[in-house]
Amino acid sequence: MKNSLLAVMLFLMLPFHVGASPEDSVRVSLLTCSPGTEIYALFGHTALRYENKQTGMDLVFNYGMFDFNAPHFIWRYIKGETDYQLGVSDYFFFEKEYAMRNSSVYQQTLNLLPEEQEKLFEILKENYLPQNRVYRYNFFYDNCSTRPRDRIEDCIQGRVMYTENNAPISFRDIVHQFTAGNKWAEFGIDFCLGSDADKVADYRQKMFAPYYLRDALKGASIKATYGKQRALVSEAREIVSRSADREVSSPHYPSPMLTGWLLFILVLAATYYGYKKQKTYWGIDVVLFAMAGAAGCVIAFLASISEHPAVSPNYLLFVFHPFHLLYLPFLVLKAKKRKKDLYHLANLIVLTLFIGFFYLLPQKINFAVVPLALCLWIRSLYYVFLTYKRNR
């Protein structure tokens, strides 16, 4: 594999002109890969395939490469400084990889003129130069799906005319289409995305998802500068097929919704027991408010510092915020001394408003958040009630 990639890289540094080959010896295609099971593969993938029968070259240009071993990768990823790069591999290895994953690969052969094919290949070679291959990845606006589309448009002698899919759908709803089988991934993504993700995506913005790009190309045409029009795709077929015999059953973890309600039942039962004993059991509050505060730190960081798109504003900060963590020592101290705590009263008011009116917010809230908010709500309600009763 390494030797093959080295040969590819050395070859790309050499001058090459596809115009020297017969017209039918070169083929450029868009590859669309079906979703995988890993979280980074849930949305599928897009790549460009370049074939030259005369030279025997068959390469895949992939804008979705990243290096886990890069310095400070995790920290940079959280900050939104996500650097992806263009990778090149032999098609043979690309096909084997997706066949092993049991993912389908669809190929759409592009109906390009010889000079357009040559220009696209030159653009890809230039993009692969060490100083050009790394780019700042942006999940919604600049990713492994939008980059191949843009490179195709760059080589066209004219303009690409898409059949505009203007059915109203938000970025978040598109994400949900691909996370439907993985509720925890959906919950985690919803947790991080803010209200901007609920904006309606136009027909072009929808192409951040590989399947939407594939569908957009089906009815697309090229309007040449001299007025003639031709289809953008000359042939479409499945070149790697999923095997039904190799389908892997998903692990049966409790869903976020079920987990949330089970936690709420436990908290409610513990609170009721505490009421019978006339005790606060503040250890429960330490765990709940510490977890809520830690989650709030993540949301606050994403909303205020991270460069990730569509993470700010995030109305979940009404429920999960860093103040829970900062106030925790005072919360424990007042619980031990059985003093009034205005923090619980304020939290009770805010959570009551959030739970009662969250459907009016300009952000689609994952329903699994409701039982988690109720856990905090019931603890604050109990503390306010208990201190009021004692003071009477």
Rank of each mutant, 00 (worst) to 15 (best):
E307F: 10
L112M: 09
Y383Q: 04
I299D: 02
P256V: 11
K277V: 08
A269V: 08
I305N: 14
F73S: 09
F73N: 11
R237C: 01
G219V: 09
N143K: 13
A216S: 13
K206Y: 04
R242Q: 13
A180W: 11
Q107E: 15
L381K: 14
A99P: 00
K218V: 09
L333S: 11
N314R: 12
P371Q: 07
F93V: 01
A197T: 06
P256W: 11
F358Q: 10
L386C: 06
L110V: 01
R27Q: 11
V233S: 00
R27G: 00
M57H: 08
L262I: 10
I222P: 09
S103C: 12
F92R: 14
T55S: 13
P148N: 09
T109S: 14
Q117S: 10
F11M: 10
F354Q: 00
L386V: 07
F367Q: 06
G158P: 01
T46M: 08
G19V: 07
Y77C: 08
L331G: 07
Q229K: 14
R27H: 06
V28Q: 09
E38C: 10
I152W: 01
H252Y: 11
K199P: 03
R27V: 07
N62P: 03
Q54N: 14
S89R: 08
L328F: 05
Q157N: 15
E23N: 14
V350A: 02
S145T: 08
Y272R: 01
P322W: 10
